[in-house]
Design a binder for these strands. Structure first.
Lengths: 125, 125
DNA sequence: TTACCACCTGGAGTTGGCTCCAAGTCAAGG
DNA sequence: CCTTGACTTGGAGCCAACTCCAGGTGGTAA
């Protein structure tokens, strides 16, 4: 699978995919004879996992660290679990904050809606 | 209220507060005779609103635009409402993405937990 | 065979949002 | 009086995460 196809499928830009490989977030992807990247199924899954984690705001650094541990085999399972647990906790916190913001936005919007209604009423009074 | 107190109360750094005023996200705050900022109740509320919105990822630009409309009075109520609605929609989308990520994290952590259990079991076999 | 297009590279530039610094002013306490 | 500490300013620096660019290669199609 060519980089443009991976880009299309994942929603990450071609530049971002190359950037991820350059900094080691993606492993060196296999190439054709002429040097063109040829993403395989495993690469694909990794790209999508990364995309999901990044969308939720997990730092690239953390993901690199995580994959470094994956690389090192089974003894690192506990460490990996702990990384994920920590990120999960942070995610939960962030979602709670966002829920608060959402409530506040809903409230404000409601206030504006009432203001509009009141204005209309004044016009027809 | 002095800037350090506002900082403490809001959790935003002193530098950030001054930065927000500099870029026009906060209005020019009243000063004492010797030029020291003296935040009033209204400033306080604005700071806390901004903090909440920023924590949820609303861009500074949008907030500046919003307050510019507030400044212009009642004719802009509809426009303000639309800004908030748009941001709310984006927030809802983002929260849904984060929920997906959370589910995935939970799943992965579960897999690791099982792996640990299995390993322990092998040891006692 | 030449024109085009997608790919490649290293490296520079951009964006958003702070964060820090140097140099200066003031009010209060010892 | 003088030192200390919190405040002031303009501007520079920093960080994460891209994003763009110039210059080059290689396969396909008119």
């Amino acid at each position: 699978m060519k980089i443009s196809e991976v880009s299309e499928q994942s929603g990450l830009s071609v530049d971002t995919l190359r950037y991820y490989e350059k900094i080691g977030l993606l492993p060196p992807v296999n190439r054709t004879d002429s040097g063109i990247r040829n993403f395989d199924e495993l690469d694909l899954r990794r790209v999508n996992f990364i995309k999901c984690m990044r969308a939720a705001g997990l730092p690239i650094e953390v993901l690199i660290e995580y994959y470094a541990l994956v690389q090192q085999g089974d003894e690192t399972i506990e460490a990996r679990k702990q990384i994920l647990q920590k990120q999960r906790a942070q995610l939960v916190t962030k979602m709670a904050e966002m829920q608060e913001t959402l409530d506040l936005l809903n409230h404000k919007i409601q206030v504006y809606e009432n203001a509009v209604l009141k204005k209309e009423q004044e016009l027809t009074d």
